[in-house]
């Protein structure tokens, strides 16, 4: 860990201004990912701006009939919120499928969206990784890639977004609210929040430098059956090989997003028109153009079968 300075601003706009001023500054909330990465010098901020005290920890109803989840709402609290459990169960289930009780107590809504990949080459500073060190190359492309992306990857990076929460938020059409240094607010749809790696894999999201997440809004409830199915090598405390967030309506229509397969939560709205015809039809379209490696080709089969399991569960 490199030495760093630390400040606690008084407002979200002040926080955004503080980070905007210094290209080596970062926001810190729960710190469950950032501090680990700093110890390994994968992240090397010289200044931390603590956003914990900014009052962004409320869950409120929106005039549109949805919910506005403050950026600092802890994963445990969000998963346990009665409104979330009732109307957005897929989100509650996704949260509880992630990390451990201790980590969820600390981890925040915004921080969860910003967690970095778990690609093992990103974690080893002796190895080439374009995401960690732009231009150094990608060791994972011809290395160990069983956990890595099967679609939307590039020649520069095959990392995945490792989270669960964002997959559920994607299927719910959530939006990310932000503020910048000038106090300007904007709303970024989840579909546009995480990027594909392309030739800039070091950039995970469409946030501008210094732009601070203040909340995530959930549209009015969708109804239907909410399923989050996470498939992994052990029963708990592991990243998804493949996960499926699905909301299925009684008439068989529905939505589905996939985790563990791409640099972002993977959802192809056009493929959802096939939902009533079953999982195979949906995944054939959702994963058209997939380019798996030898190690991770199984994820295509697994995605189809996991969606199938989720649809069965929804209809049961």
């Amino acid at each position: 860990m490199k030495s760093f300075t630390y400040e606690r601003p008084n407002s979200p706009a002040e926080a955004a201004a503080a980070v905007s001023r210094n290209p080596n500054a970062k926001f810190i909330a729960g710190g469950t990912n950032l501090l680990d990465l700093m110890k390994l010098q994968i992240e090397t901020p010289t200044h931390l701006v603590d956003v914990n005290g900014l009052g962004l920890d409320k869950i409120e109803a929106t005039p549109e009939g949805g919910l506005r989840v403050g950026a600092l709402v802890r994963n445990t609290d969000l998963a346990a919120d009665a409104r979330v459990r009732k109307d957005y169960a897929v989100l509650s289930r996704a949260l509880l499928a992630g990390a451990s009780g201790q980590l969820r107590n600390k981890a925040t809504t915004a921080g969860n969206l910003l967690q970095r990949t778990r690609c093992p080459y990103f974690y080893d500073t002796a190895q080439a990784c374009n995401k960690r060190q732009p231009g150094s190359g990608c060791s994972a492309l011809d290395g160990v890639s069983r956990q890595l992306a099967v679609i939307g990857a590039s020649e520069a990076c095959i990392a995945t977004h490792p989270g669960d929460m964002a997959v559920a938020m994607r299927v719910l059409d959530a939006a990310v609210e932000t503020v910048d240094a000038k106090g300007t607010k904007r709303k970024i749809p989840m579909a546009e929040f995480h990027r594909l790696p392309g030739d800039r894999p070091e950039v995970d999201t469409t946030l501008a430098p210094g732009e601070l997440i203040t909340a995530v809004t959930l549209p009015k409830p969708l109804g239907g059956a909410h399923i989050y199915r996470k498939v992994r090598d052990r029963a708990s405390y592991a990243y998804a090989l493949v996960s499926v967030a699905a909301v299925v309506q009684p008439d068989g229509s529905g939505r589905a997003a996939f985790g563990g397969v791409a640099h972002k939560p993977w959802r192809v709205e056009a493929a959802e028109g096939e939902m009533a015809r079953g999982a195979k039809a949906v995944t054939a379209q959702a994963f058209a153009g997939a380019k798996p490696t030898h190690d991770n080709a199984y994820k295509l089969t697994l995605a189809e079968r996991t969606l199938s399991a989720a649809l069965n569960e929804a209809r049961a």
Binding site: R229, V231, L302, R305, T306, S308, A309
Partner: peptide, 8 residues
């Protein structure tokens, strides 16, 4: 698991 082949 009959769908996902998860083993427990």
């Amino acid at each position: 698991d009959v769908d996902t082949a998860e083993i427990r």
